[in-house]
Nucleic acid binder design. Structure first.
Lengths: 233, 233
DNA sequence: AGAATCGTGTGTTTTTTAGCATATTATTGC
DNA sequence: GCAATAATATGCTAAAAAACACACGATTCT
């Protein structure tokens, strides 16, 4: 805590290749009109029910998008990593947020006001096409996830989550440890199960030498087996 | 079967207000480039794994979008009614279909080739914005559905489906009978339960005077109670 | 018309998973 | 450094839902 961190962040056009489709004038307009937001670990970015005002783009850090269901039980519906955008679904649909967002770790975000992003989309068809593609990909993921989460058994759902985390966040130098450390509760909320069952099933996987655990670090030992468990459900 | 039906269908700009955003030239281009498809009851429109070639717009009829999960169990992920479009998600995401589509009843569809709709989107920002909105709305519905389907109990899920069907397809002249007749199996696939449980729970609702049934016709008698059951899960 | 198939309805059993209780170990705050 | 709190772990019980079995009426097919 001694040194005040005052690192220069990547500029907005470095964060995402997306902005390469903008004309010089459009890029200038964007650069004059975004703001930087910083969030601490476990800090809420926005809440369910709020009205969206900005499209958000992660510079560094990780964010979970969750929805509170019956009896306050929370489900993680998406996870966002650097260079990815979020908070645009509700804005584009002209709705209030149906999900909340919370930083997993210290996170830096570029926030682009609603009217700025809308003007850019309406004046740049490549940018519009990007969002159409992005939303279409997300909707496909949501459709697949809904079926997995409802039809697979606990082991299958947890295996799928572990593979998802590995594919999305990558692994550390050892080539096996998943590069994101989730609490058992988050892992449960991502896999549609109770925390107890997440803990229990992780232990079983460890006993079966499919994974190894060290606190929140999870190392995938037998990926084939994990994929098999995910597939058969 | 005696008379050959050769009714003139609504023209494409009558089917959806969407096309009002097109310029006269764009509308002409569209009208020169779509084809009509007809499907019988229970006929497949497209299969999981196929490559999309056309955006589809329902003129008349009803279509279910489903996904086959673990052990061949089918889940209905969306339902489409007249004036609505479908089959565009996979196309825009540049993926093969992750879902299949099947006509509930005799259905007439206008099919717009991929390159035609893409050209129109790229040359008309209002059209692009329409699809951005539409996809955003669908993604919100998918997010909410995933949580409902996983967290609510059988009664809550079935109640939610019945309300969804009423809100989406409306009611008949009596003001209570839902204007779509699904098999018990489809109702089960929509509500993430087995056919037996759909049948059983419908009977329970009928005994509790929340609904009344006559074959596949379902009449909602106590809407407040149904909404309550859906809400508490 | 009769056989076969399909959709519907109902009871019973078994599996899966949530819920709860409780212990133990980390982490955080003062 | 120590108390308070949160996270992890594990066993037991109860509830929910699937699976299975079987009966019956309505359609469809030949």
């Amino acid at each position: 805590m001694a040194k005040k961190q005052n690192v220069a962040f990547k500029s907005i056009e470095e964060v995402s290749d997306l902005w390469k489709v903008l004309t010089p004038d459009q890029l200038k307009y964007l650069k004059n009109n975004y703001v930087i937001q910083k969030y601490k670990k476990n800090e809420i970015v926005y809440c369910e029910g709020e009205t969206p005002t900005h499209v958000l783009c992660i510079v560094s850090g990780k964010v979970k998008i969750f929805r509170t269901g019956v009896g306050g039980r929370s489900q993680i519906v998406r996870m966002v990593k650097p260079c990815e955008m979020f908070a645009y679904r509700a804005m584009f649909a002209n709705e209030d947020f149906v999900t909340g967002a919370c930083a997993f770790e210290p996170t830096v975000i570029y926030a682009i006001p609603k009217d700025v992003i809308k003007k850019l989309i309406m004046s740049n068809s490549d940018l519009a096409w990007y969002f159409i593609q992005d939303l279409s990909i997300d909707l496909g993921i949501a459709d697949k996830r809904a079926v997995s989460l409802t039809q697979k058994h606990i082991r299958g759902r947890l295996a799928e989550s572990l593979i998802f985390l590995r594919d999305n966040y990558g692994v550390e130098e050892d080539g096996a440890t998943i590069s994101i450390y989730l609490s058992r509760e988050d892992l449960a909320n991502l896999s549609n199960m109770t925390t107890s069952n997440a803990i229990r099933t992780l232990s079983t996987f460890a006993n079966e030498k499919i994974i190894a655990m060290d606190g929140r670090k999870i190392k995938i030992i037998d990926e084939d087996q994990l994929r098999k468990i995910s597939k058969i459900g």
